[in-house]
């Protein structure tokens, strides 16, 4: 199942990107090869040639329509650093981070950093003729860049886990040696024997799972992951088919991903930052929604374990 979805995400992603690019090439969506006619705002400030001047470029509405094949409501005024020579030619570096047509942002991203866009200028009649480098295959390039970037990010995430993992696994080992994890497992025994029938009631995995779920409920994500990974290792000790997920592992992850939330800290913080008059209003709704999801998640994990294609005795590690 995970195999298919993983493959589907990649195939759908690349095909969609290719499809969009073919559509854009056939439409010439960025007006490649058509020169832009525009005005430099307050050209009198550009008296010194060969020196860059901060000003802005006014792109008429008609020009936007001609290049982008969309109706534009108004002229676009784009801040730019303009550098002209005596021959009335030059270069403009457009700042597209502000309120400019979306296409300029996409062009900037496809041609460079995404913040600036470089145009070659030439004086023509009463205005200026500008030319950008041609833009094509925007989405395929985006897909490639995203894949390379995230590969690095994934390693950073894993490396970032090392410190916090070492801390918590160290503390957990001490608690385990002192017999605390077993005592904890014994306390919650009435619940866990039903949830995880194939895990012995005083097994250390039970203690780690309880720690993981408690940390999740309190919104302590940093502490939850080490406990959870420790629990997975301990559950794997009971696994008779290495490489295949056991029923208990799936039920544990169902509990983990749908976990009952007491305080959705991140969401509240974002709401407060966005100027909500009552950021914490979602505590009740989040609690009820996650409680419902948790009850269903456990039930679904138990039911699906009996479905033919997922049954334990029919599953192999390949």
């Amino acid at each position: 199942m995970l195999n298919h979805i993983w493959l589907a995400l990649i195939v759908i992603g690349i095909l969609t990107a290719a499809g969009r690019d073919i559509h854009e090439v056939s439409q010439n969506s960025y007006g490649n090869g058509i020169p832009w006619m525009l005005q430099i705002e307050s050209p009198q400030t550009i008296s010194v040639y060969g020196e860059a001047v901060e000003t802005s470029l006014r792109v008429p509405r008609r020009q936007l329509q001609l290049h982008f094949h969309e109706t534009a409501a108004a002229d676009a005024v784009i801040p730019a650093r303009v550098n002209l020579t005596h021959a009335r030619e030059g270069v403009a570096v457009l700042d597209v981070t502000g309120d400019v047509p979306q296409q300029f942002k996409i062009m900037a991203e496809a041609l460079g950093s995404g913040e600036t866009l470089t145009a070659r200028l030439r004086h023509r009649g009463s205005g200026w003729e500008a030319e950008f480098d041609p833009v094509s295959l925007v989405y395929l390039k985006k897909v490639t860049n995203a894949a390379f970037d995230i590969a690095g990010v994934a390693v950073q995430i894993a490396i970032g886990l090392i410190g916090i993992m070492a801390l918590w696994l160290g503390v957990m080992k001490v608690a385990e040696k002192a017999g605390l994890i077993t005592s904890l497992a014994r306390i919650v025994r009435p619940i866990t024997v039903r949830l995880f029938p194939d895990v012995p009631a005083d097994h250390p995995a039970v203690g780690s799972m309880i720690m993981n779920i408690s940390a999740n409920m309190l919104g302590l994500g940093n502490a939850a992951t080490p406990f959870g990974l420790k629990a997975m290792e301990e559950l794997d000790e009971l696994n008779t088919k290495k490489g295949v997920a056991t029923d208990s592992m799936v039920t544990f992850l169902a509990l983990n991903t749908s976990c009952i939330t007491l305080i959705p800290a991140t969401a509240i913080a974002v709401r407060a930052a966005a100027g909500s008059s009552d950021p914490a209003i979602i505590i009740g709704t989040s609690f009820l929604a996650s409680l419902t999801a948790t009850i269903f998640a456990v039930t679904i994990s138990k039911l699906l374990a009996r479905v033919k294609m997922f049954r334990w005795d029919r599953s192999e590690a390949e």
């Binding site: 490489g243 997920a245 799936v250």
Partner: peptide, 11 residues
């Protein structure tokens, strides 16, 4: 774990 069985549909 390579064979995740019903974990993804459950999630």
């Amino acid at each position: 774990i390579r064979n995740t069985r019903h974990a993804l549909p459950t999630g």
